[in-house]
């Protein structure tokens, strides 16, 4: 009874697809050949599931509250994030900072490069033909579809993640958050604000 050993999932009950058939076969061959083990695959999935935008949000919130850390992050974002305890593997990371004059947005036109070790898996739209095609040519129009309407006097910097670097945007710290702790600030930092398709959230109105 296959369902006895793992939690019921709706996708388990659909008709087996050719790609799923290949996935099971490849996985079992790799285990049979001693390339990997079932436990190693399970551990890798757990490690990926544990990565979420909350990791990046903690990094951004610290940059907002710690001048030395902000400088270290802009100098070498991977090293600074590792120093906070995040496992980035061999990732090379560049942090780009939004200001009153400049807004940064990240895209990968060649595939779907994304700082997955810090933010988790990318959203589906980041991998879409529309986002990858249009962001380098009409970023303002793309951003407006996300509800982000930038003032005319703000310069847009698009970063095409073409090779060995990955990118994270440091959004602008929202107004009205003076004296906030890094923990409270992190709750305002969304995934999209670290890709550049949104601003950080405004503090709730009390």
């Amino acid at each position: 009874m296959p369902h006895d050993h793992h939690p019921h999932r709706p996708d388990d009950d659909h008709a087996l697809t050719y790609a799923q058939q290949m996935e099971i076969a490849v996985r079992e061959l790799l285990i049979a050949k001693g390339v990997t083990t079932a436990a190693e695959i399970t551990a890798q999935i757990a490690a990926m599931d544990a990565r979420s935008p909350a990791n990046g949000a903690a990094v951004v919130a610290r940059a907002w509250t710690d001048r030395d850390f902000r400088a270290a992050l802009l100098e070498d974002a991977a090293e600074a994030s590792r120093a906070m305890g995040f496992d980035l593997g061999p990732l090379r990371l560049i942090a780009v900072e939004n200001t009153a004059e400049v807004h940064n947005v990240i895209v990968c036109t060649l595939c779907s490069c994304y700082p997955r070790n810090l933010l988790g898996l990318p959203p589906d739209w980041y991998k879409s033909r529309a986002y990858r095609s249009r962001t380098v040519k009409e970023p303002r129009k793309v951003l407006s579809e996300f509800g982000l309407h930038l003032p005319e006097d703000v310069q847009v910097r698009v970063h095409d993640s073409t090779a060995d670097m990955r990118y994270i945007v440091i959004p602008q710290r929202p107004a009205g958050t003076d004296g906030w702790s890094a923990k409270d600030l992190a709750a305002l930092v969304t995934r999209d604000s670290m890709i550049g398709t949104a601003q950080a959230k405004a503090p709730p109105v009390l």
């Binding site: 380098v136 040519k137 009409e138 970023p139 303002r140 129009k141 310069q155 847009v156 910097r157 698009v158 970063h159 095409d160 993640s161 073409t162 090779a163 060995d164 670097m165």
Partner: peptide
């Protein structure tokens, strides 16, 4: 779309 916006690439 805007002449002075920029694109960075590696």
């Amino acid at each position: 779309e805007r002449p002075d916006d920029t694109i960075d690439a590696e």
